[in-house]
């Protein structure tokens, strides 16, 4: 009896934890990916420096997205921000100045997005979609529609070299960004208020949270992080491609959403995003190593995103309700006849 209550207490705690945490689906995918890859293509783990680099690329953009999605907004412009900042950086001859201007451009793009969302009142899906197209055009204009070579190629090559073991500067930056965002969202008051803004904006406003300033912060974070990813890409490839970023957009959205960041806001975690980025990074590298062409990789990542977005607990509940009301309507229709 006593044992039983303890067990149910433990079960209850586990169930509580499962209900509170949002990383469940990400963990399932990660476990699946690790098992399948370990059996079919173990080289993805032995070549872990490549895998880590891929995870860092997907994860960095996904981290910025997480900050925005937590508030119930969305930043589709990250792909173009990545391209624009890379092109800006490569067209400025001085490396240091180029990096600073590129990062500033990312923050500026974030501010513009936030102005449209907060002050004009456009839905962030549409506002950032317009920015996605306009900035893609801007990247073409700045770069004259062809890849721009970095003038300081030595710096780029030095940047690609590992610092300690497999840790390249890219991976290091990703780890620092991950820790910084994790601390910001769980330990800093302004960051914790992101959850409140996403959970119930009106309640957050009534509780005295500066909702508008938080949304500005969120978009600035995602713009800055996307620009950072653009800078890193340009350094590693020693050239900036104006068409960069479209496949990153898909993978980073998939990472954030499968990691449990709920699109309506208020729920999710940076750890979940990391889990999502890990599973997608390992999957992509394993697919590339086993000679699967990029078209089929797109099918895989697209399917994961589609499954992720419809297997959210909220979405499943909505589907169950739809099915239930459908059958209820059928029953009611049959009663009078």
């Amino acid at each position: 009896m006593k044992l039983g209550t303890e067990q149910s207490g433990l079960l209850g705690r586990v169930r509580n934890l499962a209900a509170r945490r949002t990383e469940g689906r990400g963990l399932i995918l990660l476990a699946l990916v690790i098992i399948v890859v370990a059996i079919l293509e173990p080289t993805a783990f032995t070549a872990y420096s490549v895998t880590l680099g891929r995870v860092a690329l997907i994860g960095l953009v996904a981290l910025g997205l997480t900050a925005v999605i937590l508030m119930g907004e969305l930043d589709l412009s990250v792909a173009s921000t990545l391209a624009v900042s890379g092109v800006i950086m490569a067209s400025i001859p001085d490396l240091g100045l180029g990096i600073v201007v590129a990062l500033a451009a990312g923050i500026l793009i974030g501010i513009v997005n936030a102005v449209f969302v907060v002050y004009v009142g456009i839905n962030s899906f549409i506002a950032t979609l317009g920015m996605l197209f306009a900035l893609r055009g801007l990247a073409f204009v700045i770069s004259d529609e062809k890849p721009v070579r970095l003038s300081n190629i030595d710096a780029g090559i030095a940047f690609g070299a590992p610092l300690i073991g497999p840790v390249t500067p890219r991976v290091l930056i990703f780890i620092v960004a991950f820790i910084a965002l994790q601390v910001f969202l769980t330990r800093v008051r302004a960051g914790r208020e992101f959850y409140a803004v996403g959970g119930n904006r009106q309640a957050a406003f009534d509780a005295g949270i500066p909702v508008r300033r938080r949304i500005f912060t969120g978009f600035m974070i995602s713009g800055f992080v996307a620009a950072l990813a653009g800078v890193i890409n340009t350094l590693e490839r020693t050239a900036a491609d104006p068409t960069a970023g479209s496949s990153v957009l898909l993978a980073s959205f998939a990472a954030a959403i499968i990691g449990g960041v709920v699109l309506t806001g208020g729920r999710g975690s940076v750890v979940g995003t990391l889990i999502g980025a890990l599973s997608l990074g390992i999957l992509q590298v394993a697919l590339t190593l086993s000679g699967v062409q990029t078209d089929i990789q797109d099918i895989f990542i697209g399917s994961i995103l589609l499954i992720a977005v419809i297997t959210d607990p909220t979405q499943l509940r909505a589907a169950a309700a739809s099915v239930r009301s459908f059958f209820q309507r059928r029953e009611k229709a049959q009663i009078p006849t």
Binding site: L76, F125, I299, G302, L306, I310, A318, A319
Partner: peptide, 26 residues
Amino acid sequence: AVGVFKANAVIVTLSTTFIGLGILRW
């Protein structure tokens, strides 16, 4: 996906774009 699962249309159609174009190019 949008009507029954109440998923976001932008994300759903973004993923079907990549799935569809991937299958087509393949």
